[in-house]
Design a protein around this nucleic acid. Structure first.
Lengths: 224, 224
DNA sequence: TGCACTTGTGTGACATTGTCACTGCACTTC
DNA sequence: GAAGTGCAGTGACAATGTCACACAAGTGCA
């Protein structure tokens, strides 16, 4: 993952000035700034643009009729979205929903521009496919977790990830954790209470503090 | 889906003779015949070839440590595999396993040949991405089913699909149905017994006959 | 024919996870 | 302070998965 990526860096990487004929393409790309919570695409929407996150994070999720939801993966700095990519070419509609989690800067590449760049630049093709592979791997991992994984192990893993990347204590509600894992709030509440009973975490309102990362980590590593 | 597809048809479509510079590519493609039950790729294997099914079916699945498994999707006549495609370029290893379900004829396209064809032929790019989109859609649908779907609804849907495409009665074991849905044999056995109790199906050893397709279909349509 | 063996299925007891219907608490707004 | 809102706790129950068996049908072989 690349931090402090500028739009120019990304453009240079995807549409190298050295390659002839890409000048027009670079000009066909537009930069947008999505506010936090902004829905980027909805299920069933047609795909018209290739979306590339410069800085920020787009959460891709599926919503159920009864209110439950699950996060499929995230598109972060310098990454692009498989769904967008594939649908763009195959003219299908989005099978999921994308939401900007924080204020997000993205490049919008219209379909014709994307199409031509794909033909013109080997570097661009490599970038697109590499992203596909990563997102697809995430997705298969998600299926595996959901089908075979225990909820306590998955929650421990999630807490470890959150505590590594963010500040302690973690500011998150039980409902948000449940949505991340595709589970129900009550289940998460019960598990957290168990963890708290073992002094692994300390629970507050909308806040969780990891007290025993080693113990959580050991649980998280079960059945890798 | 295309039936009675010949290797020549497929080659012509992917590497049109009309397009210059593809002659060499057409010669770089090799045809293989995989016997039923043959493992095509294993989890963790590096990807070296782009695989294209001419005729037959490759089941892509994930196996759990405790013996449970789930089918992610199938690659059938004239289709190609997302996993292969993505990993090929991003140099990742397979995150799942592929098995030929029946005797399957496939085209093996070595990575350099694939790479060049991708640059040379817009038609080929479209084909590859269209396949990506479809497989990805399948995968997201699978996540949704597994996370939010009820097992009776999913089983009914599966039985309907099997009875539409194949001959009656359906020749399949409870274990195979469970593997398809990522569930456990006992669960499937119990559900089938329920269905049998309502005279929706007739159960034999390794055989299931659908007696009331309308009833199954109604159940299958719940929470679409 | 009889016997071991494999494979597919039936079943009860129990564990885990999800659902439902509540309750209460903390914080905000009026 | 009162009312409203969002977050968390809880018990009862339903759905699904796990485990440990039993049993039955077919297969191969002595």
């Amino acid at each position: 993952m690349t931090f402090s990526l500028t739009t120019d860096d990304l453009l240079e990487r995807l549409f190298p000035a050295a390659e002839p004929g890409l000048e027009a393409l670079r000009r066909g790309v537009e930069q947008v700034c999505l506010p936090a919570e902004q829905v980027v695409f909805r299920r069933g929407d047609p795909c018209r643009n290739y979306l590339l996150v410069v800085q920020g994070s787009v959460r891709v999720q599926v919503l159920a009729a009864n209110g439950r939801e699950i996060t499929l993966y995230r598109v972060r700095d310098g990454q692009s979205c498989v769904i967008t990519t594939s649908c763009l070419i195959s003219i299908e509609s989005y099978p999921a929903e994308g939401v900007a989690e924080v204020e997000t800067t993205a490049l919008v590449v219209p379909q014709p521009v994307f199409d031509q760049a794909l033909g013109d630049s080997a570097e661009f093709r490599r970038f697109v496919f590499a992203n596909q592979g990563q997102r697809l791997g995430d997705l298969i991992q998600r299926v595996e977790d959901v089908v075979f994984g225990r909820i306590d192990v998955r929650l421990a893993r999630l807490l470890m990830t959150l505590s590594e990347h963010g500040a302690q204590p973690i500011a998150i509600t039980h409902q948000q954790l449940a949505s991340e894992l595709g589970s129900a709030r009550e289940v998460i509440s019960r598990q957290l209470k168990q963890f708290a009973g073992r002094d692994w975490v300390c629970i507050g309102r909308g806040v969780i503090e990891v007290k025993a990362p080693a113990a959580l980590d050991e649980l998280a590593r079960q059945s890798d």
